[in-house]
Design a protein around this nucleic acid. Sequence first.
RNA 1: GGGUGCUUAGCUCAGCUGGUAGAGCGUCGCCUUUACACGGCGAAUGUCGCAGGUUCGAUCCCUGCAGCACCCACCA
Length: 937
Amino acid sequence: MEKVYSPAAIEQRLYQRWEAAGYFSPRPAERSYCIVIPPPNVTGTLHMGHAFQDTIMDALIRLHRMRAEQTLWQVGTDHAGIATQMVVERQLNAEGKRRTELTREAFVERVWAWKQQSGSTIAQQLRRLGASVDWTRERFTMDPDMSRAVVEAFVRLHQEGLIYRGQRLVNWDPVLGTALSDLEVLSEEEDGLLWHVRYRLAAGDGQLVVATTRPETILGDVAVAVHPEDERYRALIGRKLLLPLTGREIPIIADSYVDPAFGTGCLKITPAHDFNDYAIGMRHGLPLINIFTPDARLNDNAPAHLRGLDRFQARERIVAELEAAGLLERIEPHRLTIPRGDRTGAVIEPYLTDQWYVRIAPLAAPAMAAVESGRVRFVPENWDKTFYRWMRDIQDWCISRQLWWGHRIPAWYDEGGEIYVARSAAEAHAQARARHGREVALRQDDDVLDTWFSSGLWPFSTQGWPEQRPELERYYPTNVLVTGFDIIFFWVARMLMLGLKFMGEVPFREVYLHGLILDADGQKMSKSKGNVIDPLDIIDGIDLEALVAKRTTGLMQPQLAAGIERATRKQYPNGIAAYGTDALRFTFASFATQSLELRFDLGRVAGYRNFCNKLWNAARFVMLSLDQAAPPPAAASAHAAAPSAATSAIDVANRWIRSRLGATISAVERAFEQYRFDYAASALYEFTWHEYCDWYLEIVKPVLQDTGDAAAQHAARRTLLEVLEALLRALHPLMPFISEDIWLRVAPLAGAGGPSIMLAPWPQAAQFEHDAAAETELRWLMQVVLAIRQIRGEMDISPARRLPLLLQHASASDLQLAQRHHALLSRLAGLESARPLAAGETAPPAAAALVGELGLLVPMAGLIEPASELRRLGKRLQKIEQELTKSRAKLAVESFVNSAPADVVEQERTRLAERESERAALLRQIEQVRALAQEPV
RNA sequence: GGGUGCUUAGCUCAGCUGGUAGAGCGUCGCCUUUACACGGCGAAUGUCGCAGGUUCGAUCCCUGCAGCACCCACCA
């Protein structure tokens, strides 16, 4: 093995081997375990959020695979209608072309070409992460069989009246020229203006002043509303106003929606361009006047000289004209929420169109019931509140999009506009024939479905639905959905509704919602902020120039480049080092707390890279020590010989490390069950570094190197190997590569070979039985060693200097342990000698420490300055006295002694007693050292 | 406007059913001891956001306040 762990040398090679060998495919077993990957955009690239959630899923999958369950991680990608269409449109624009210059067929063909070209990027990136997805079952939401599922779902929902076509106001993105669902609209507060406009009474005997944020929509006004109780305007209700600029007559109506306190208390009503006005218009039977074209220019309902103006130009012109006509009373600044399309950032226009909707209430009710009854469980649990709130107020889902890329809506129209929803054109024609008694010409709906409609079917469409395939039976419902909370409405809720609808069962038993990865400053990572870290750059490393180039090219706002470059150079003066996949994965695991926000910290990655190196070198040590091994003693003689001191000492240590490993395995299992990957990571880290390496390896060294005891050496080597081998298996779900690489070398020696650690069984805690006696004994050993090291450290005694040690007040058990572990103590604490004080022997001046009642004395002669020992003792004394004061105070409170549970009181008394005897010992010690200090040298 | 979280060591975060606070990184000493300097040994550091309340006892439960974050919502 190389001296330094080098992830680049092992990772890709191992993954290729695994994939080629087909290890990612499920192997038949009684129990199954299935996770579907949240399908990433096919043309996208892997970001930190993906890497995080894929790490979690892979860890779960690998654990269950090792438990010999029939484990499937279903992989695939999403066609991502809007996002992908936009990317390809941008490419066209760069070539100086426009989408509309192409035929629909030509454009779609071009998107497919782009998908072929870029679709493998994310798949390759997933491989780099070590994701053990079953590539042989990869799906794409636009695959023919997936499309068939989409059509089937649409047709069935339509047949049941759960999909309908309706004309109403939608969120219209004028840049894309499509409708959007409510979820795809982001509202943010922005600075705007409030224009106060005069509307004159038709009779010429007065005016109303109306406050509006959108003066251009005056052209579509059909009324002005006031509150029915508003004394100021009560008398005017029912009278007519002249619409400014056009002179069209509109009524003054009364509606309690109007807030008399806002603005002037007069609200202009534009039903075709505002959701509230639409509702009011409906209530009052008012007409709708649409004044915009689909790209938000004024249409023919506007006065001739304004037609064709963009809505923002129109606003300027209309304000100017109002001003000129003396109809503009005043303008004031105003904060308002502006709705924007989540992809384009364009201001959303409420716009009257025909769209397809899913009637959501009948689907939402069973979904809520499933969560309420616990058939689906959110982790962390409190997400159910968010879910319920949204589901209660949910509006019908607009599923049609005026795009070219996506699943074409399976609806056809005849010349009369009659609709035929069918699984195929032929079926539609048949329906039309039946209706008309003759063949009629049909035209398919031009629109496509919302991407999330097909995503919502993912857990069963990937398994062949609507066909009843065995895998559908086997893997539905899936066990857990792992995803970000930001997608709970878009995806989780819809899968739940559609899964219940079509499969009659929830699509997953549990939903693990993880937090959002932020940069080190707590900012969301985004291209425009220039703070994006590519997970692959952490794995492979990247130099500063490449990182700067990556962050500053292709910006939507190129003027940000300079600032981004400056910040990047400051934050990563040396670029990013190559840490490897395992370190990155372990970092993600350790980040997987229940927190909503996770600040990514490269320091943590470096720490876990070091951890990998530690593990690597521990393995090296084990391998090296095996190379030096003498042949094991013959079984008979090993048993016949009386156990030597070395044997019985190492035997306790062997039992101890096995006991600790067992506890670690249990802790990891518990952690996985609770989705607390941070607990799993820290249990493994703690055991590997601070128990196996810090103690066990050090304990084993003298046995292996200093003694000629073959039986002890043999037992130590076996334990070294067995524990390492099982530890690697326990580490594998989080660190697949390094664990495999080492395991392939180690396992055969441990008699646990196999083609891959992936297929090896998950370690059984029961095989590493808990051993309380060994743990107690090792705790004693460690405390003694630590106490002596502390003296050495604080007294600045060179590690090379061997110390004599005297034991004071040693119990029989202390003496026995000291004798058994004499060699170890000497080695680990650097002792020259160790012996108990003889009866009646006066202790020499010494630095002292206590382990329970046992006093550890390091004679000071020539080693220790009395002054520094006094300082050390003084510090200890101070601390003890503080604790004593607290303890005494507590026990002095009668109510505590009376009301607190007996064991708590007892514990406090014990603590007090211990502190008191420690204090006494310290005082004696101080006295003695002080006397020494005063003696002339 | 409504909702949900968060506020613990210099930094990033843990902290189980209330019983006198932990890790990693960083810092400071000492050490190139043949697994590892991506290392070893030792050390220091916390009015647990603020103010009340409940309790024998509160980082933990309750109320209020402040700050931060996110989600939902039609106030022109």
